[in-house]
Design a protein around this nucleic acid. Sequence first.
DNA 1: TCTGGGGTCCTAGGACCC
DNA 2: TCTGGGGTCCTAGGACCC
Length: 435
Amino acid sequence: MAGDAGNAGGPGDAGDAGDAGANVIHADLDAFYASVEQLLDPALRDRPIAVGGGVVLAASYQARAFGVGAGMPAWRARSLCPELVIVNGHFREYQHLGDAVMDVFSCFTPSVERISIDEAFLDVSGASRLFGAPTSIALEIRRRVREEIGLPLSVGVAQSKHLAKVASQVAKPDGMVVVAPGHEEEFLHDLPVSLIWGVGPATAARLASAGIHTVGQLAAVPDGFARHLVGERAGQKMAALANNVDPRKVGPARPASSMGAQAALGRQRATPELVRSTLGYLADRVASRMRAAKCAARTVTVRVRFPGLRSVTRSVTMPMPIDTTLTLTEVAGELAWTAISQERQIELSLLAISASHLVAHSVQLALPFAGGPPAPKVAARSQIDRAVDAARARFGRQAVGYAAVVFSSTPSVPEEFRELAERHAERAIDQSRAT
DNA sequence: TCTGGGGTCCTAGGACCC
DNA sequence: TCTGGGGTCCTAGGACCC
């Protein structure tokens, strides 16, 4: 593996020292959205670019060198990097190219666990007879993705998912790191704790206040100390990963347990019209997805964010699941107004609806329940939904909607971006929980 | 001119039941 | 009369991930 990655130093270079047991590959496309834009428009190559509108969704490595990162307001990104080029995303291209990369992975093993549009775990333990050692497979995958698709891909090869993931992060950008069996502790020892899966800014700060900065330091603290510091379960998991204990296997994702939608509003007065139209739009998205997935929700949660980023949630669990757009709109509306009036706020910056306690159902739900709409209304709404779903299936989503549900304000992000994110969240609902 | 949209998991208190 | 423990569900908030 000579010369494949300049940053694959340390134990990772022992690629031919026998990586029997290092059968997990984590493959992660670098700065995915930005790399696609640079692929589509050669004029953007080697330049600092960001994908987004008012906010940066992704930044090229040339832009990251200036401190530009995802989630940053565009004005701030420009001030950090005056020559930054901000482009609108080609969200449908992202889906196509992400799928094409996954197809390359599938050429080497059927065991591909896609965890986002641009990232997957591969178990290649059964692939060596056909394709050689995991290290050779990883090299070949990188080569093919680069030559056939044109995108840079970083890979980590190790015994466990966690270690493979850490390795691919260390390998970025456009590199490969192999953690040879027997060298795991050595590899992890000096890395910052923030590379551990599940250790974010808050946990890292708490650990730092206790003098813990590296994975080695975390692994060395007495049993129970981590749990005292960050809580029972989080502490357990964190300590296990620091000690390289990770029993997770590469496999299919579990069924979705919730579905939601949100809309940032900038800063607007909390008028009944605004709340009604925004929640109507969001409920339409969520409810139609539920119906398409043949499921319904017992719990509805509304999140309301106010200027200053403070947010509150209100939720309710109903005796019967719902999947009707208008009923979801009404339930969400009551929750939202409860929160807005309790908080005595007059302006909003975001509204969100989430549906959980999802229950699979094969027949159309039209069951009334105490406190819900009366039976004839439920049946009528169900019919309306079915008609709308059918019309959309034939003529497209924009063809028909609910009069009161037209999203009045300018959408904060393009429709294609929402669709990309939704499609990515699509996972089968557990049909064993059918009503 | 202070922030996108999609998710998961955990904690803690209270209600309720046995 | 006062008192005990355990389990489950619901709600609100927070941390984290892509």
